[in-house]
Computed example of a mutant assay.
Amino acid sequence: MDSLLRTVTGPLSVTAVQGPVLAHEHLAIDLSRPTDRTASLTARHTMAVAGELADLRERFGLSLVVELTCRGMGRVPAALVRISREAGVAVVAGTGWYHDAFHPPEVKGASVGELANRLVEEIESGVGPGGTSPGVIGEVGSHGDLPSEAETRTLTAAAHAAVTTGLSLATHAQLGRGGLAQLEVLTAAGLEPCQISIGHQDLLDAPAIHRELAAAGAYVAFDTVGKESYQSDATRLRLLLALLEAGHADRVLLSCDISRHGYLLGEGGHGYGHLFRSFLPDLRAAGADDALIHLLTRRNPLRFLTGGGGRARQSVRPRIRAALQESSRTGREATA
């Protein structure tokens, strides 16, 4: 029986998603604060966002965007519906709580059970006047090597809600840190690793941690592609090649995490399509074939969203192995 995705415009068959998926994006968000007024995508950016996605659908076959703006992040369900319809691209919306700097007042003093019930009710009844149904839990976050007390409660509640509803869960790990601790909290609450994506791992230059997460069965999100001010794409590619070489191609998710209007193409940014225009061609140059690209950009995110636990092993081609060896050699020479 074909699995169904919960999108902002209604149920969608997995088999209807024929093209690539962006596994971690924001289409309408407001994280602006007095110290940072630009961390937003508001109503005035809606058509620009829809235009970028429509262009990616035409040029690269983009079929689905996983939109991980959750409670306290300026989520606007109606904007997601409009963008999806204007662009002709399916959108899966999120729910949950970001890291504690952005927790709304409802978190303070609430028990894990109360928080979990709130999420379950939202998933079952919908969000906003149109009753938009979240189709994923995330991005639920922590900030540091260990989650705070409040973050532990929200992560645990999110895991309970995921178990109850069957939805998968994506995390925010600040600068890639704390992913193993997140996985421990979430699995201790009964959530299967195959329903968990640990976020922003491309910002953490720690291949051993990436391997440990993947070996446990969790998805490892390389989801800030193009954010060169945080990490170079050259380093991201090296880290990705190392994870592929270790045999974990079936546990990688890719995306760009566009989270402020300055990243839009129309404002001089790299845009939602940087993954397709720049990073994937570099991966192909390192030896990735069509089957591997298909695995990374379509099969993996769809298995994550539907909670598929099976492995989909993809062998690493010799050119990728050679590229990894060359990257290691260059790195040693640079530090000599």
Rank of each mutant, 00 (worst) to 15 (best):
G113L: 03
E114C: 01
L115M: 10
A116K: 13
A116C: 12
R118D: 04
R118C: 05
V120Q: 02
E121S: 14
E122Y: 03
I123N: 00
E124Q: 12
E124N: 13
E124D: 13
E124I: 02
S125E: 14
S125N: 14
G126H: 01
G126W: 08
G126I: 11
V127S: 04
G128H: 12
P129E: 15
P134L: 13
P134Q: 09
P134K: 07
P134Y: 10
G135P: 03
G135V: 07
V136N: 02
V136R: 04
G138M: 09
G138Y: 08
E139Y: 01
E139N: 03
G141S: 09
S142T: 11
S142M: 13
H143L: 14
G144V: 07
G144D: 10
D145H: 13
E149D: 14
A150G: 12
E151A: 01
E151D: 09
T152M: 05
T152I: 06
R153L: 15
T154K: 05
T154A: 07
L155Y: 11
A161D: 05
A161Y: 06
T164L: 09
T165E: 03
S168T: 08
S168M: 03
L169H: 05
L169R: 03
T171G: 04
H172E: 03
A173N: 15
Q174M: 10
G178E: 08
A181R: 12
Q182G: 02
L183T: 09
E184Y: 13
V185K: 02
T187R: 06
T187M: 05
T187K: 10
T187E: 13
A189F: 11
E192S: 07
P193I: 06
P193M: 05
C194P: 01
S197V: 05
S197L: 07
I198L: 15
I198N: 02
I198A: 03
G199F: 15
G199W: 15
G199Q: 03
H200M: 08
H200L: 11
H200W: 09
H200D: 13
D202R: 04
D202I: 12
L204R: 14
L204P: 11
D205M: 04
A206W: 01
A206F: 04
A206Q: 05
A206Y: 01
A208M: 06
I209P: 00
R211Q: 13
R211D: 06
R211V: 12
L213K: 02
A216V: 04
G217N: 08
G217Q: 07
A218S: 12
Y219W: 15
F222L: 15
D223K: 02
T224R: 06
V225E: 00
V225S: 00
E228D: 05
E228L: 00
Y230L: 13
A234T: 14
R236S: 01
L237T: 11
R238A: 09
L240I: 11
L241C: 09
L241A: 12
L241R: 15
A242D: 15
L243T: 09
A246V: 11
G247C: 08
H248W: 11
